[in-house]
């Protein structure tokens, strides 16, 4: 069984949508939700070889976070022993090229725009998770939405 997914997302609605998508795709493990950047930094310090608690198998990270920005959280992760190997999927409303470049340069595994990824069954997100942690979604539901999915994912 895969480990915990760490979801760093301040918008409760978006967190709910992500949870719903993973649940309906049959994600078997728990989901930890953190709603601001400061808590995320704390989490990084307490988890992993140095902190003593286990590492998540995947991080889904929003960029615009209260207190401390997502990019800074990403930088701390990449600078903390043990965390370097944890895949980080950045999921944000921004589709600005500068943000995307900064995240990929800062060590993000994947950059997804919420505008296209958080759409209905959220195929993009589920697929991204499946690829990153070697897990096969068990259930898919409903028909794909009438407007074709946008391919906004950029693999690093």
């Amino acid at each position: 069984m895969p480990g915990t997914i760490l979801l760093i997302e301040d918008n409760p609605d978006h967190a709910l949508l992500i949870q719903a998508a993973l649940e309906s795709a049959g994600w078997p493990a728990p989901l930890s939700v953190i709603s601001d950047g400061a808590q995320a930094l704390e989490y990084v310090r307490w988890h992993g070889p140095a902190g003593g608690y286990g590492l998540p198998c995947l991080v889904v990270l929003d960029l615009k976070l209260p207190k401390v920005g997502g990019l800074e959280v990403l930088q701390l992760m990449r600078a903390t022993p043990g965390w370097q190997q944890v895949p980080v999927v950045v999921l944000t409303t921004s589709n600005h090229p500068a943000d995307r470049d900064a995240c990929l340069a800062g060590g993000a595994s994947l950059y997804l725009s919420k505008i296209s990824a958080l759409d209905g069954p959220m195929t993009d997100l589920v697929q991204a998770v499946a690829q990153t942690v070697a897990w096969t979604p068990t259930r898919t539901e409903g028909d794909p939405p009438a407007r074709g999915p946008h391919q906004e994912a950029h693999v690093h």
Partner: peptide, 18 residues
Amino acid sequence: LQAPVVSLRGFASLLQSR
């Protein structure tokens, strides 16, 4: 404004599918 629109679309889509 993008954030609430994302939510709107997401939940509408969930309603439609489930």
